[in-house]
Design a protein around this nucleic acid. Sequence first.
DNA 1: TAATCTACCAAACACTTGTTAGGGAAGGGT
DNA 2: ACCCTTCCCTAACAAGTGTTTGGTAGATTA
Lengths: 203, 203
Amino acid sequence: MPTKKKPQVTAAAARRGELLGTAAEVFAEHGYNATTVRRIADHAGILAGSLYYHFDSKESMLEEILRTFLDELWDGYDTVLASRLGPRETLEALVTESFREIDRHRAAVAIYQKESRQLVTQDRFAFLAESQRRFEKAWLSTLERGVAERVFRADLDLRLTYRFVRDTVWVAASWYRPGGKHSPEEIARQYLSMVLDGIAVRE
Amino acid sequence: MPTKKKPQVTAAAARRGELLGTAAEVFAEHGYNATTVRRIADHAGILAGSLYYHFDSKESMLEEILRTFLDELWDGYDTVLASRLGPRETLEALVTESFREIDRHRAAVAIYQKESRQLVTQDRFAFLAESQRRFEKAWLSTLERGVAERVFRADLDLRLTYRFVRDTVWVAASWYRPGGKHSPEEIARQYLSMVLDGIAVRE
DNA sequence: TAATCTACCAAACACTTGTTAGGGAAGGGT
DNA sequence: ACCCTTCCCTAACAAGTGTTTGGTAGATTA
């Protein structure tokens, strides 16, 4: 029976996570394709070949980064959706949760934004397509409920509205920097104010 | 004195434009870095080396694609800005003009969206940074005028609002397909309706 | 008809890429 | 003292990259 096995595996997992973190940042900064494994290794203070002690391939690093992010994202989303709030409150909670995820996983979100379109076609990244379907379903049904309950406008193309709301939230990852003057919650509040009430003065 | 010189140069320019068009589409679909010159050549029905009869390098193709797009974009923007409309009408005209540009140059816009962040640091693409500065100035001043004239809300962070409006417009290039059921003007109308008045029902 | 030019091909170049194989230093376990 | 695992390095590989060179069929010009 092996003694003292657990300490090593957690240490290994910690190192793994550390390397994935630096890889995510380099991917986010230069793009996946333009990022060489040597550059990731440089950033981590080791040599390129050494990465292959921890990971099977460059692609598997990308996969693990995106999987980890999406898993945590859906943890938050599912909690919101399970609360069975009204449509407006659901939308507010989803947006706020999204900005929190951007705060926590900004590199992964940036990568997702830039690369997901081309990745979804690969079998390996089929989970991205499934996530997108769930995503669209969650948002669209919230919007539909809102229209039915007369809290959202009925004169808008809902699919267009969905893309509008989705994009306005996630593109923020391209300029957001954690530790800035706005907290995720504050940014969410302003975004919601614009999306819900518009930027024009009411008369 | 050379006779019959002009027909050739216009034919050459036409071929150039043709090749730039296919290059732009491949760039937009797979990303600049992931696009090989061989794939562009395949798409055009020639061999990779033959591209170098028309262009200096892969990078110069990218530069010409983006320059052409930005030149036409600013033609439209400058016309709008020169009209000296009120802030709300200026915003409406700029948004509408943007969607028309997306309709005309959707490949170039998609490339710009995905690659500009990394390109601006290169000397060769310094014109992107200049364009971004003019862009921010045009939009921000319009928003500021709107706040001063009490047609836009005064309680919003203007820089956040600027990024919001900017992003909501341009990310549309990632899903917009010309010839769809919505014309650029119709999409602009719906976007403006959401941005100006919000998606919530007014009470 | 001969000369020239246009737009392409064929084949190679130098370089970078992701990845692999073998080795070795450090350190805890027995 | 020895072994074994962990984590990294050194050095190389094969495939793919952007680009160059020399050549050539066919149209255009003189």
